Amino acid sequence: MSNDAFQMLADPTRRRIVEALRTGERQVNEIVEIAGVHQSGVSRHLRILHDAGFVTMRPDQQRRLYSLRAERFRELEEWIRGFRLWWEKRLERFEAALNANQIPPCSQRFNDE
């Protein structure tokens, strides 16, 4: 998974555009209204997201409808999943160490004091 995916989504305007597209296909003018950015800026960011594989465009007569491409987000999910599994294993070991030392959970310790 390329770090370029994170660089693409690091821009706050592009994240607002992605958020606007989460609910489905939208025209540029709808995205402009939601994102609060001028039409030229939205068009530029949509082109960047399209080139990076995050967005697809479907022509519909005179309109261009934009939507998210799931594939690119699945790549991000897979990359993040590896870290989540790593952290879960560490937390399980930590929990086992706490249980082995019979240290009461924080909530119980605070209630006893």
Rank of each mutant, 00 (worst) to 15 (best):
R64H: 01
E77S: 13
I80T: 13
F73S: 05
V55T: 08
E95M: 02
R81F: 06
R69H: 06
A70Y: 03
F83W: 12
L85K: 00
G53N: 08
W79D: 11
R69I: 11
T56W: 02
L91W: 06
E92F: 10
I80C: 05
V55F: 02
D51L: 01
R81M: 14
R58S: 10
N99M: 09
E88F: 00
W79R: 13
L68W: 00
P59F: 01
A70Q: 02
G82P: 14
P59L: 03
G53I: 09
A97C: 08
A97L: 09
A100C: 00
L91I: 14
E95T: 12
A52G: 14
E92L: 08
E78P: 05
A97V: 10
E92Q: 15
R93G: 08
I80G: 03
Q62K: 11
A100Y: 04
W87E: 02
R72Y: 05
L98R: 15
R93S: 08
R90V: 08
G53S: 07
E77Y: 13
R90C: 02
F73N: 06
R90L: 04
Y66A: 00
K89A: 13
A70C: 01
F83K: 10
R58D: 05
G82R: 09
F73I: 07
R74C: 10
R90M: 02
E78H: 12
L68T: 09
R81C: 07
E95K: 11
E71P: 10
W79Q: 13
A96S: 06
R74Q: 13
L68F: 01
D60A: 13
E75A: 03
T56R: 11
R81Y: 12
Q61K: 08
F83T: 07
A97F: 04
D60V: 11
A100Q: 13
P59C: 02
D51W: 00
T56C: 07
E77L: 15
W87N: 04
R74M: 12
R84F: 04
E75G: 02
L98E: 07
P59S: 05
Q61Y: 00
W87Y: 03
R90I: 06
Q62R: 15
R81D: 14
A52H: 09
M57T: 15
E95D: 11
A70P: 01
L76R: 08
W86M: 12
E88R: 14
R69G: 04
E75H: 07
F54S: 07
E78S: 15
E77G: 09
E88K: 05
L91G: 05
W87C: 09
D51Q: 01
A70N: 01
F83E: 07
E92H: 14
F54V: 15
P59E: 06
A52T: 12
R74Y: 09
